[in-house]
Write a protein that binds this DNA or RNA. Structure first.
Lengths: 228, 228
DNA sequence: GATGTATGTTGTACATCGTACAGAGTTGTC
DNA sequence: GACAACTCTGTACGATGTACAACATACATC
């Protein structure tokens, strides 16, 4: 049942994952699903944990920390690329299943031995994953928009309206920078570029914390937060 | 109509914003709304642009760039704090209204004169705003979860299950770090802490780009992306 | 003043959703 | 063979977004 739902979500998007659709794919009446699951939310949790379990995880022991964290980010990006719906499901009060635990353990190991405190390790990982998820969400939305309305067609429709609002006198910076960014990326938003740019920023930001700590030390357990 | 919808969303959440609820608050039948708006999506766009317009924006001309960008981040955080639903609305193909334009112009000005190219300015702003929005979404979800299920009660229910899955032998890092983080924040996730920590990382990450450029220069227009 | 047209409003109706509830099979154990 | 536990089914309810046709009112034109 979870596999069926995942397949459905991969092919037709999260909105297509209805109890009726899943049950139909299983050749069963909708209410049957409620024998195995209390409600739809729990089914989504199970879907998420299932894809977590199957994520391939590269062993980067011994590599530089930037390489290791890049691998973690890329793994998550690949996951969201294969299952875009995963980025849309609520992550707070996460599905504490075996998949999430294995994922958490593996990703923490990329931050181990860098001289960070336990809390800092969690902070850094949360920060990194939050960036990847936000980017994945943007990418997914950008793709959905692109397929929906031909993009060029949308720009043609919105262009005049934009010119009207985008008074160059009142908004000189916005018009100049907006135009430059749009032309550089060939569209309103380029998630691939945003990922490369953002990941570089994330790593640089973490560097100011990590490279202040001594590698190999047991960690500065007393650091309350990493704000300096 | 937009004001009514905003009030409804502020008080009862985005899920409570139904065409029927808005129309009822206006003392009118649901279909009347469709005279002014083609569909619900457009109404949400108008709501977003309306709160953008009303956002107070501090003039930080002359201050250090970290101060200016912190102000931008805090303004957005305040907006999402006052209108949590704003963080949940699709932002791709954004509502190109006067509110968004004014916001964009103002926020770009905080990045002006730092020697960044136009594209880099957009990249940096996008990166910063994406962080704030992701954090706001987490905070909103955390709050919703807290009110829903007493938190302590939830931990009591999930604790045993967690201990079972969280085999310390198999997942030593996860159990140690997870426990430390949970105890430090008093719960599973602390969005306030994540904001302070994350903003510091964001600024450090941007510093590696900004402080490489010469302040006051017209910008390195040829830099394709900021990945170094 | 009468009339045609735009504009705002209403009621009814439909398809879709999650799921509550009561009952009908099927299976395994004593 | 009888009972209990599970699994499965059909029907039904209240929500949602919105299509469609009919109605009211206001204003421009003759």
């Amino acid at each position: 049942m979870v596999d069926t739902a995942i397949g459905l979500a991969d092919r037709e998007g999260l909105a297509a994952v209805t109890m009726r659709a899943v049950s139909r794919a299983l050749g069963v009446v909708p209410m049957t699903l409620y024998t195995y699951v209390p409600g739809k939310a729990e089914m989504l949790d199970l879907m998420l944990d299932a894809v977590y379990i199957r994520t391939p995880r590269a062993d980067t022991t011994g590599a530089r920390w930037r390489t290791r964290l890049t691998a973690v980010a890329d793994e998550n990006r690949a996951l969201f690329s294969a299952h875009p719906w995963a980025a849309e499901i609520s992550t707070l009060r996460p599905p504490l299943g075996p998949g999430l635990m294995a994922k958490y353990e593996h990703e923490l190991s990329a931050l181990d031995g860098l001289g960070l405190s336990d809390v800092e390790m969690d902070d850094c990982l949360t920060y990194l994953l939050s960036f990847v998820q936000a980017n994945a969400r943007e990418a997914h939305q950008a793709a959905a928009v692109a397929t929906a309305g031909d993009d060029a067609q949308w720009w043609a429709r919105v262009g005049p309206l934009l010119a009207q609002v985008l008074d160059e006198r009142r908004y000189p910076l916005a018009s100049r920078v907006g135009t430059a960014a749009g032309e550089a990326h060939g569209s309103a938003h380029d998630p691939d570029h945003a990922y490369r740019f953002g990941l570089a920023r994330v790593l640089d930001g973490l560097a100011s914390l990590i490279e202040r700590a001594e590698p190999g030390s047991p960690g500065r357990q007393l650091s309350a937060d990493g704000t300096g």
